[in-house]
Write a protein that binds this DNA or RNA. Sequence first.
DNA 1: CTAGTGACCAACG
DNA 2: ACGTTGGCCACTA
Length: 114
Amino acid sequence: MTQMPPMERIWFIVNLIPEGTVLPYGIVADLAGLPGRARYVSRALKLAPKTLALPWHRVINSQGKISFEKYSEPFQTQLELLRLEGIKVNAGKILLSQYQWKPDLATLVMTLPF
DNA sequence: CTAGTGACCAACG
DNA sequence: ACGTTGGCCACTA
């Protein structure tokens, strides 16, 4: 039985993030079984096939901010997508205490195919 | 092989 | 609230 590759595990987790919620890169890495590898998450998202249609915009950094350069094209796109799902962004910041997805870990772990 | 580069992060000052 | 620093590691030139 081959392990699901790290990058696929990251895509799997991101795909589970519910609408109207967000998750920091580092937490995605943790849930994917790759603690301390937040940078790998950003790389995995960049390389993700468009056909997967992942909710990539729900992944933000640990400070509640969008990680693209301010005013850049992808920055604006992510900001708009987040607001479309009712996520408030004030002064470029998202309140993690309000919007961070907090899955029931026991249940989630049983669901994961890895 | 080495050096630079990230959609990062926690710890400091 | 910032800016810096050291750690992280796959990928690229």
